[in-house]
């Protein structure tokens, strides 16, 4: 589904990603962990197509569903089925959640050759998905993320995920800022959305999330490289040992 080879990316002339190799197959759940500032959000943003980052296309290769991802606009990536839940979701005052999500879904449906949903049809779908993520229906008529608490914004991202039905969902620290109940709800939501066709990349700092959403692989990103990959045990090991041993190993081999 997604193949990343030797991905180099920089921002404002500073290289942040220094050669990432990474592969995701349908149905898989990958967790990406790593210390603050190691480049996890950068990786997610680059995959989603944020043009603030410059990808070194002379060495980097990224394919998504058989296409050269680096040539696709962010909206086309989304329409093909990539979804990024932002670490810091953006506020759009004046646009209701329902209106925004319908506009978004209809773009994606158009791309898939499906008919757009009218407001009534959409309303039904939205209500169903709001129940799934246990979100109060009043949020449908609130402006997108405007004045939402940190946790509400995160839950709103999961609502979007549920509505848009992507093939590859990248969750950038969606668990941070959630209270215990919300964490469980979000995790249950994700688990329900797990399927043989859909893959997830979970960026997280906490092993706790991985108790709920059991990953197939865990990767450690450090200084712009994946320095270690393993099964879910790796997350447990990180939980007990911290990152120092990873740092030492990586800095020695560098």
């Amino acid at each position: 589904m997604l193949t990343v080879k030797n991905l180099h990316a920089s921002i404002d002339g500073v290289e942040i990603l220094k050669g990432i190799d990474f592969e995701v197959k349908p149905g898989e759940v990958h967790a990406i962990m790593g210390p603050n500032g190691s480049g996890k959000s950068t990786f997610a943003q680059v995959l989603a197509g944020n043009e603030a980052y410059e990808v070194d296309e002379s060495v980097s290769e990224v394919t998504f569903l058989g296409q050269n991802l680096l040539e696709l606009s962010p909206e086309d990536r989304a329409r093909m089925g990539m979804f990024l839940a932002f670490q810091y979701p953006v506020e759009i005052p004046g646009i209701t959640n329902a209106y925004f999500l319908r506009a978004s879904l209809n773009e994606i449906r158009k791309f898939r050759g499906e008919d757009p949903l009218d407001p009534l049809e959409f309303q039904e779908l939205l209500e169903e998905k709001m129940r799934l993520v246990q979100m109060d229906p009043v949020y449908a008529e609130r402006f997108v993320n405007a004045g939402f608490s940190g946790g509400e914004k995160k839950r709103n991202e999961i609502l979007q995920l549920a509505v848009l039905d992507p093939k590859l969902a990248i969750l950038d620290e969606t668990d941070s800022g959630l209270d215990i109940d919300a964490l469980r709800i979000v995790a249950e939501g994700v688990n329900r959305l797990r399927s043989p066709e859909r893959a997830f990349i979970l960026v997280t700092h906490y092993q706790r999330l991985l108790n709920y959403i059991v990953p197939d692989y865990v990767h450690v990103l450090y200084k712009g490289r994946i320095v270690r990959s393993g099964g879910r045990d790796l997350a447990l090991e990180l939980e007990s040992r911290g990152y120092d041993w990873i740092r030492e190993e990586a800095d020695v081999s560098a």
Binding site: S73, V90, F111
Partner: peptide, 17 residues
Amino acid sequence: FYCQTRGIRTEDAISLV
């Protein structure tokens, strides 16, 4: 960019905003 990652191209995003 947020709108784009939701499949909405820039010009439509502007008119949305």
